[in-house]
Simulated scan of single mutants.
Amino acid sequence: MVMETKERLITIAGELFADLGFDAVSTRMITDKAGVKLSAIHYHFGTKENLYIECCVYAHSTGRKLTFGDVMTAEPSLLESPEGQATIIEKIVVESMHYHFEPSRPEWETKIIQREITHPTAAMRTLSEKIFKPDTKSAQDFYMIVRPEATEQEAQAWSDLMYGQMLLYKMAKQTIEMVRGENALDQEFLSTAAQTLARAMILEAGLPLPEKLIK
């Protein structure tokens, strides 16, 4: 029951924060919509600020996506050959695209992260330390294993290929649909985009393309 109340508060508050922004949402609005006492926020989170941070972390971590570090730890043998290294890139790109654009994912989870990226609050520091920095560092570390002669800036630029394209699709979704049509970012297109992105990242890393990515 305690966990149910906490998760309900995160979901309800997340929806409100995503739609209205942090400053426009009061604790009373959250508890009234959740059907719980005002004291529940203090009990579970301490402050509205802490609740907002929990919402952002929850939104980004739901269905936690695969990272380069995850694959390198789980399947270290893939690092031993260029073909295996290319497989790692393909796995990460396809999984990340699926994670970020899963149709069943609640809309508020995407909206609150978009809002936080464009108008950072104190929550961004927590997101950066817990999620963004470790994720990007694992991508850069992988690139340096594949191309030990590369500079840190080159590794950062390489990891930005993936994060940048996915951020574009998230942040510019409405604009893209206005230009290309209502279903411009449907699952078929996103699957094609994942393969195209994986192909570009593999080739830029100087690795052989997996057979299914060869046109």
Rank of each mutant, 00 (worst) to 15 (best):
K6H: 04
K6E: 03
E7W: 10
R8C: 01
R8P: 02
L9G: 00
T11L: 03
I12G: 02
A13F: 13
E15H: 02
F17E: 04
F17S: 03
A18Y: 08
D19G: 10
G21E: 01
F22G: 04
F22S: 02
V25I: 03
T27I: 11
R28N: 08
G35C: 02
S39P: 08
H42W: 10
Y43T: 13
F45E: 00
T47R: 05
L51S: 06
I53D: 04
C55T: 06
C56Y: 02
L66A: 01
F68P: 03
G69M: 01
V71I: 12
T73D: 12
P76L: 04
G84P: 05
I89V: 13
K91F: 03
V93G: 07
V94R: 15
S96C: 09
M97N: 12
H98F: 14
H100W: 13
S104Q: 10
W108C: 00
R115M: 07
I117L: 14
T121K: 01
A123F: 00
R125V: 06
R125C: 03
T126R: 10
S128I: 06
S128W: 14
S128A: 13
D135P: 01
S138Q: 06
Q140V: 06
D141E: 12
Y143F: 15
I145P: 06
P148F: 03
A150C: 11
T151K: 01
A155C: 06
W158M: 05
S159A: 11
Q165M: 14
M166Q: 10
L167G: 13
K170P: 03
K170Y: 07
K170C: 12
K170I: 13
M171C: 03
T175K: 10
E177F: 08
E182M: 11
A184M: 04
S191M: 09
A193G: 08
M201E: 05
I202K: 06
I202P: 09
E204K: 15
L209T: 09
L209S: 11
P210V: 09
E211F: 11
E211K: 15
L213Y: 04
